[in-house]
C-alpha cells in the first residue's frame, strides 16, 4: 500500500457538501470504492457510498478498480432536479 496523489472533482450535491469543486489530495486507498468511503467519512458527504459513482481519467469505473497515481477522479452523485 502506498500513497497516491489524485485530483478529485465534486459534482452537484457533493460539491455543495464538500464546499469546493476540485482538490488534489493524497490517499492510501487502493480501490475507487475505498476512496469514495474515505471521502464520505472525511468530509461528511452524507450520502450512502453505494450511491456515488466515480469516473477515473474520463471513464466511469466500478468500485473494485485500483486507484491510479496521478488520476483525475470525478465523483458523481444522483441528480434529481428538473
Amino acid at each position: 500500500m502506498s500513497a497516491k496523489n489524485v485530483t478529485v472533482r465534486y459534482f452537484a450535491v457533493l460539491r455543495d457538501r464538500r464546499g469546493l469543486g476540485e482538490e488534489t489530495l493524497s490517499t492510501e486507498s487502493d480501490t475507487v470504492g475505498d476512496f469514495i468511503r474515505e471521502l464520505v467519512v472525511r468530509y461528511r458527504l452524507d450520502l450512502a457510498p453505494a450511491l456515488i459513482r466515480a469516473a477515473q481519467d474520463g471513464s466511469f469505473v466500478d468500485d473494485s478498480t485500483p486507484i491510479r497515481d496521478g488520476a483525475q477522479i470525478v465523483l458523481v452523485p444522483p441528480v434529481a432536479g428538473g
Partner: peptide
C-alpha cells in the same frame, strides 16, 4: 450507472 436506487430525497 446507479444500480442502487437512491432514496428520493438523498440529494434534496
Amino acid at each position: 450507472l446507479f444500480p442502487t436506487a437512491p432514496a428520493s430525497r438523498c440529494v434534496g
